[in-house]
Structure formats: C-alpha cells, structure tokens
C-alpha cells in the first residue's frame, strides 16, 4: 500500500505539548511539596515535575517548567525572594533533559548518575541562594536540623548550609529521579521522542 507520512515529532502538536507539559511539571512539583508537608517529611519533594518534564520533553522545556514552578510557588506564598531557587531547578531540568536526549535515562545506573549530578548542583547553588534569601537556613525543617547539628560541632554557617544540603538533596532528587524514570519507561513510544532523542529499534 502506498502510504504518505507525517512525522509526529516535528508536527504542529509539539508547541501545544510544551504549553501543556510545563504547567503539568509546575503542578507536580507543587503537589509533591504539599504531600511532603502533609506527611511531615523532612525533604522538599518539589522537583519531581521538573525531572519528568525534562525526561519527556527535553532539557529546555524541563528547565522552563522548573523555573516557572519556583516563580508560581513564590507568588502563591508571597515569598517572592524564593523564586531565586529557580536556578537550582533550571539546572536539574537541563541535566536530566540532556541525559534523556542522549538516551541515558534508561537503566538504574542512569538514574543514580542523574541523582548524584542533580543533587550536587542543587547543593552547590542552593546554599548561596539560601544565604541571600534566608541568611543560610532553609524553609525546610530537615535541612535546618542538619545545619543546626553541623553548627553545633563547629562548622560555620556557610559550609553547614552546603554540607547539610547534600544528603537532603541526594534523598530528594533520588526519589524524584526514580519516580520520573518509572513513569518515563512506561510511556507509549510516540511520546518518547518528544525530548529529541531517537528510538532505538
């Protein structure tokens, strides 16, 4: 049969997907944060959306989703300076997005690598931003406890802010990456190429 073809990855729908996925990423991030606080968990759990959107739609859309989350949540809570944490989320989106684009979001090793890279980025950038916004501590109780503990044994605030963020972010981004990976693996094929990767047949 003589068939004509239209390539879905380059179709008109891509812009619409972007306009839909970014808000979904924002909302998943926000809901993750709500669940974390309603269950009184000492981690943020507000990057799940960024990671998933980055895995599905690629680095720039993931980064945009993450940044918009920080802006939207700071508008809702009134804590406008917290929007500066967008830098952390942008990095998370870029890292996972590029890994997914190069087809490196498939195995459990990939997830571990993503977790470590994203957690490091969040710790490195999160600490100075927290210094500016909050003076070093955080909006999150878990990080604050660790900072208090580190301070008590003599670490100065700037270093404590950084060191405390490493374990918190490893757990936090680990959970986010695993959930995103589970969901990404189960996607139907036609959604997997939206991030710019090619499907290996």
């Amino acid at each position: 049969m003589n068939m004509n073809t239209v390539d879905s990855a380059k179709g008109r729908l891509k812009g619409t997907y972007i306009a839909i996925m970014i808000p979904i990423g924002v909302a998943i991030n926000y809901i993750g944060g709500i669940i974390a606080s309603s269950l009184s968990l000492p981690i943020y759990l507000d990057s799940i959306g960024t990671v998933i959107v980055a895995a599905i739609m690629g680095p720039w859309v993931g980064a945009a989703s993450g940044a918009l989350y920080n802006i939207v949540s700071s508008l809702i809570s009134g804590n406008i300076m917290a929007s500066m944490f967008a830098i952390c989320n942008i990095g998370s989106g870029l890292i996972v997005g590029y890994m997914a684009r190069k087809n490196h979001f498939k195995s459990i090793t990939d997830v571990i690598v993503a977790t470590v890279l994203v957690a490091l980025w969040n710790a490195i950038t999160g600490a100075p931003i927290a210094m500016v916004v909050y003076g070093g501590i955080d909006g999150n109780a878990g990080t604050n406890l660790m900072i208090a503990g580190l301070n008590a044994i003599g670490t100065d605030l700037a270093n404590a802010a950084f060191l405390a963020r490493i374990p918190v972010n490893l757990v936090d981004k680990g959970i986010a990456s695993v959930i995103a990976w589970i969901v990404y693996k189960r996607l139907p094929d036609h959604l997997k190429t939206l991030n710019g990767s090619t499907i290996e047949k």
Partner: peptide, 24 residues
C-alpha cells in the same frame, strides 16, 4: 508518599496526547 504521587503523575502524563488534541 509513593502510592500517592505515582498515580497522580501517571494519570496526568497519560492524558497529554488527548489534551493536546483537544486544544488543537
């Protein structure tokens, strides 16, 4: 945490193609 967040996430992702088509 996981049994609450995973269904929420999965449900919202599954619907995106239909949503995109409806918007179109």
């Amino acid at each position: 945490f996981v049994p609450i967040i995973v269904p929420v996430v999965a449900n919202s992702i599954i619907k995106i193609q239909d949503q995109a088509i409806a918007m179109e």
